[in-house]
Design a binder for these strands. Sequence first.
DNA 1: TATCATTTTTACCGTTTGGTCAAATCTCTT
DNA 2: AAGAGATTTGACCAAACGGTAAAAATGATA
Lengths: 221, 221
Amino acid sequence: MAQISTADTPVGATRTKTRIQQENEKKILLAALEVFSEKGFHGATLDRIAGAAEMSKPNLLYYFKNKEEIHIALLTDLLDVWLAPLREINPQGEPAAEIGSYIRRKLESSRAFPRESRLFANEILAGAPHIGDFLQTELKQLVDEKATILQGWINDGRLTACDPRHLLFAIWSTTQHYADFSVQVRHVLGLQPGDVSYYDEAARMLDTLFLGRLVARRTKG
Amino acid sequence: MAQISTADTPVGATRTKTRIQQENEKKILLAALEVFSEKGFHGATLDRIAGAAEMSKPNLLYYFKNKEEIHIALLTDLLDVWLAPLREINPQGEPAAEIGSYIRRKLESSRAFPRESRLFANEILAGAPHIGDFLQTELKQLVDEKATILQGWINDGRLTACDPRHLLFAIWSTTQHYADFSVQVRHVLGLQPGDVSYYDEAARMLDTLFLGRLVARRTKG
DNA sequence: TATCATTTTTACCGTTTGGTCAAATCTCTT
DNA sequence: AAGAGATTTGACCAAACGGTAAAAATGATA
C-alpha cells in the first residue's frame, strides 16, 4: 500500500500535499459534513459519503483510514469555528454591546454553518464521545475566563445578577436552535424546506430577550 | 406464527392484553427509550435493545414487528408529554405568571424526562422523518393558538412587542438544552456524570432572562 | 390434567456495512 | 519517453445487522 507519508518524511510530520490530495480531502470532508450532519455518525455510510464525494469507497479510504477519522477531522475543524464568537467578547466593552454582538455572531454562525451546528449537536447528544476532552479543558477554560468578565460586570452593577455560565448556555441554546431545530421552526412557521427567512425575526427576538425587558412591569389594580 | 390479534378480535381492534404482553411491551419500550435516546435511531441495534430488555431478539420481534415500529411507538407516547406544558398556558392569567410557570413546567419536563427530550432532539435533527406531520399540523395549530394569546397580551401592553412564536422557540431551546446538551453543561460546570444539580441555577437564570431585566440600563457619562 | 393459545428459543438467512488487497491506471518529473 | 510514485479501481471479505421460520416450552383454562 502506498503511504501518504513517504520515506523522506518522518512519521508524524506533514509532507507537502499534492494538488490531488488537497482537492480530494476537501471534497471528502465537504461530502462527509453533508452526510454526517444529516444522518448522524451511525446513519452515515461510507458508500454514501463516497458517492457524495463522487469517488469510490476504496479511494475515499485511501485518504482517510476509516470512518471515525473523517468524523474526527470534521469535529476538529469545527471546534475553532465554535469557539471563535466567544473568544471575541471584550472585557473593556460595554456589557450590552458585548452581549449583543456575541449573540449576533452566534446567530450568524448558525445561519452560515447549519450543518456544522448539527454535526456538533449530534456529537453532544451522543454523549460527546470524541470531544469530551475538548469540552472539559479548552471550552471550560474559555468559559471560565469569559464568565469572570461577566461576573465583573455584575459586580459593577452593569449586568443583572445571574450565573454567567448559565447566561452563556442560554445564548448557545437559543442561537443554535435555529440551525439544529430548523425543521421544527419551519414547520411551525409554515415555511418551505429551504427557507431561512426567519433569521431576521430571530435576531429581533433575541435582542429583546437578552437586551430589552421582555415582560412589562406589573400594573397595580 | 401466532397472531396477537386472534380470530375473535376484528382486525385493527385492540384486544385485551395479556399480563405478559403488558409487562414485556413496557420493558421493551423502556429499554428502547434508553438505547434510542443514547445512540440515535441508526446507532441503536435490535440486539442491544433486546439485551437491555433482558429478552432475545426474536422474542422482542414477537411484540413489535420491526425496529421502526418501536421507534414510532416511543415518539407517539412522547408527543403528548411534549405538548402538555404548552397546553396549560391560560389566556386569562397574568402574562408574567403564565410565562413563568410555562418555563418551570418545561424545565421540570427536561429534568424528569431527559431521555425523552433527547429522543425528540434526535428525531428533529434527523429531519423529523416520523413526526413531520405532527409538527405541521397538531403542533403548528397549538402554537398558533397560544401565539394569539401572547399577541393579545402584547396588544394590551402587558408584554413587550416580539414575535410570540419566536418567544416560544426561545423557551423551548433554553429549557431543552439542559437535557439535550447535559453532557456539555456538566463538562463546562465541572460536574460529575450523573449530577443534575444545575437545574436550580438554571431555573433562576431563565426567570431572570424571561421575566426580569437582564442588562442594566446604560448609565450616561 | 388435558388442551389450546401464548410465549420463548434455536437456528438460520439475506443484506448492508466497514474495510482490505492487489492490480491497473494515471501523473509528475527527469 | 521512461520510470517512480501517486491515485484509482474492482473484486472481495468478515462481521454486524434486521428479520424469519419452526419447533419447543410455558401459561391459562376448562
